[in-house]
């Protein structure tokens, strides 16, 4: 079998599908870190989001209400992280890790409590790909775009808007100022706590959205540990993207591609062990997190609580 046959439109479409949840989460953590708060809890928040989306969809039969629920739950978890790390000045890594640990236990517990099923939820309604009629006949573009659902477009749109807000509006300038030197920002009348809360809650909402994509768009159910480290991959993408939404988008597409490629290679049965192929996106993340990209772009005050004194 010709190995080059995996490089087709299907691969591109799978790349975008794989990247979409990462893009949401990566934009969220980019904002949180730009404001000076690191949120490794995105991994757990994604999982909570995925579960909430399925739970609400199960009862309402409408996956969009499920998505909304995931965003709200994500925002609430973001609020908890904001409160502990900004107001209580707790160690941000520890609080984030606590959220991740909760996410291991609670959804699994609720799976049994609600449905009495240990590994996965029942099937629920899911979000279907859009069909844009006028694109259908175009080569490449037609099959590529008509295989995606609305959330994929929303992710790309969010990256563009996120970039514009962060770098071309006073709000974005204030967020970056607070993440670089909160005291300097404070002296010119910028409300450090308010902006940090806003950004951390936003990062939770975006992670919830990314999680919802996994459960009610990509699949139509929740399965145990279904995020598989995507929250951490999103953080890797943020670093790869030098803490910019557009850069993160690019990095997420790269990770999505790595994931799609390993799946495609598995499907055609190349003689590389599948376990090894599956590590591909994680190895990329590791390289990014190891600072291969250079640390210089990190906001100076990230991880440090601000004490008004």
């Amino acid at each position: 079998m010709n190995i080059l046959s995996v490089f087709n439109i299907g691969l591109l479409a799978a790349t975008l599908r794989g990247a979409t949840p990462l893009i949401f989460a990566a934009i969220g953590v980019t904002y949180a870190e730009r404001s000076g708060v690191t949120n490794i809890g995105v991994e757990g928040i994604m999982l909570f989001g995925a579960f909430s989306a399925v739970l609400v969809t199960y009862y309402t039969k409408n996956p969009w209400i499920g998505v909304l629920a995931a965003v709200i739950v994500g925002g609430l978890l973001g609020l908890v992280h904001a409160w502990t790390s900004i107001t209580l000045k707790a160690n941000q890594i520890v609080t984030g890790a606590a959220v991740n640990l909760l996410a291991v236990g609670i959804p699994n517990y609720l799976l049994i409590a609600i449905w009495n099923q240990p590994g996965a939820s029942p099937m629920v309604a899911n979000i279907k790909p859009l069909h844009i009629a006028f694109l259908a006949n175009l080569p490449i573009i037609g099959p590529l775009f008509n295989s995606q659902n609305l959330l994929a477009y929303l992710a790309i749109f969010a990256a563009i808007v996120g970039q514009i807000i962060l770098f071309h509006t006073p709000l974005g300038l204030h967020i970056r100022a607070v993440g670089e030197d909160p005291r300097a920002a404070d002296t010119v009348g910028i409300d450090v706590y308010k902006l940090r809360y806003l950004c951390v809650i936003f990062s939770g909402m975006m992670a919830g959205l990314g999680g919802a994509y996994l459960s009610v768009a990509q699949l139509s159910m929740f399965t145990k540990q279904m995020t598989q480290g995507r929250g951490f991959i999103a953080m890797g993408a943020m670093i790869f993207g030098k803490w910019t939404p557009i850069g993160s988008l690019g990095a997420c597409l790269l990770f999505g591609f790595a994931d799609a490629l390993q799946l495609a290679l598995q499907t055609i049965g190349v003689s590389i062990p599948s376990d090894l192929l599956m590590t591909f996106p994680y190895v990329l993340t590791l390289i990014a997190l190891a600072g291969f990209v250079g640390r210089s772009a990190a906001p100076a005050a990230v991880g440090k609580p601000y004490d008004k004194g």
């Binding site: 514009i164 071309h168 509006t169 006073p170 300038l173 204030h174 970056r176 100022a177 670089e180 030197d181 005291r183 300097a184 920002a185 002296t187 010119v188 009348g189 910028i190 100076a300």
Partner: peptide
């Protein structure tokens, strides 16, 4: 007040630092 330890953000430009908190905008954009 001009503080002894400058209240400036190293990665921002001079103009950005100068106008921070009282930015000049056009249509909501910097």
């Amino acid at each position: 007040m001009v503080y002894q330890h400058f209240m400036l953000i190293p990665t921002f430009t001079v103009a950005e630092n100068l106008t921070l908190g009282a930015e000049i905008t056009r249509g909501g954009f910097l």
